[in-house]
Amino acid sequence: MENVISIRNLTKTYGKKRGVSDVSFEVHEGEIFGFIGPNGAGKSTTIRSMLGFLNFNSGSINILGMDSVKDHERILRDVGYMPSEALFYPTMKVSEVIKYAADVRKVDCREEAAKLCERLQVDTSKKIKELSLGNRKKVSIVCAMQHRPKLFVFDEPTSGLDPLMQNTFFELIKEYVEQGTTCMLSTHVLPEVRRYCDRAAIMREGHLIKTDTVENLIATSAKNVKVTADGETKEYMYNGDINDLIRELGGQHVENLTIEEPSLEDMFMHFYEGQEETK
């Protein structure tokens, strides 16, 4: 399986401010790859370094078989990028923005753009300044998808979209991926990762914590425990044998004990909160 994205030892610093440090991972051809972590984890810095919008300090990035620095312009021809914030000239009409995005690439995208606008219910006659955040997001989606790129890179794409449009957005992604496109999805919406992604990389505080299949990442024998003992209530995730837990509590006066399967958020949270880093 070919790697559409290959990042090796990427480091980007902002003086005293945190960037990313020694980040390495691959995105395989034809997969939907989740890039997850809390806000400020380094996801956007990594993406902007990938696409040549930031000069990084060290490491190497290969996109679609090309060097991200030397072949920056060639790479962008085959990438559909959607930033976390969709900013356009406010007085332009939606139709003008979509055409402008196509003209920059020197590609006739009218047929694909029309299909996308219909699916996403985009009113092309309105001016950008008349649109809500969600409708600006939809325009950004059209601009990223209309040239049928080999690689999608989406940074927090569904914020501002209503649930119906979120479903439509992922339906479109799956359709393009079935036709050969690869997708990298940066998000902190964990149910999206579970539902749509094949593999994922977890970022925390500028470091890559783990990369694996989503199935493996959420597989855990851990349980959420809430115990009231000796007048004190504690809540925590327990990773050991439940029988060991019972023995540990044996010397206490237990007033209440609840043991539950962890939520999806809880299963990922231990990656976010200072567990030992692994690759």
Rank of each mutant, 00 (worst) to 15 (best):
N135P: 00
S6P: 08
I32W: 11
N167W: 05
L51G: 04
Y89S: 12
G180M: 15
G59R: 09
K174W: 00
S140G: 15
D103N: 08
M145A: 03
G34S: 10
A114H: 00
L51R: 12
G65S: 14
S186H: 05
A219N: 05
I202Y: 03
D212Y: 03
Y238I: 04
T13I: 12
K12R: 13
K210D: 03
G19D: 12
K210Y: 03
D22M: 13
C117S: 03
K234L: 04
Y81T: 04
G30T: 08
E178S: 13
K138D: 11
A86M: 13
L264K: 14
R195M: 08
V225D: 10
N256F: 04
E273L: 11
R148Y: 07
I173W: 03
V189Y: 07
L120I: 12
I259T: 06
L257W: 01
E2I: 11
Y236D: 08
P191M: 10
V189W: 00
H253M: 12
M237D: 03
N239H: 12
K129W: 00
M145E: 09
P157M: 12
E273H: 10
C197P: 02
D266S: 12
N239C: 02
S159T: 13
I246Q: 09
V97E: 02
V227H: 02
G231F: 04
Q166S: 07
F53A: 11
I63F: 05
P149I: 11
S68E: 12
V122P: 00
S159P: 00
D78Y: 12
L10Q: 03
T182S: 06
N224H: 15
L164H: 02
V23W: 10
D78P: 00
A41H: 06
E26W: 04
R194A: 14
P262T: 14
S58A: 15
M267K: 15
E96M: 04
G52K: 09
M267F: 07
V94Q: 07
N39F: 05
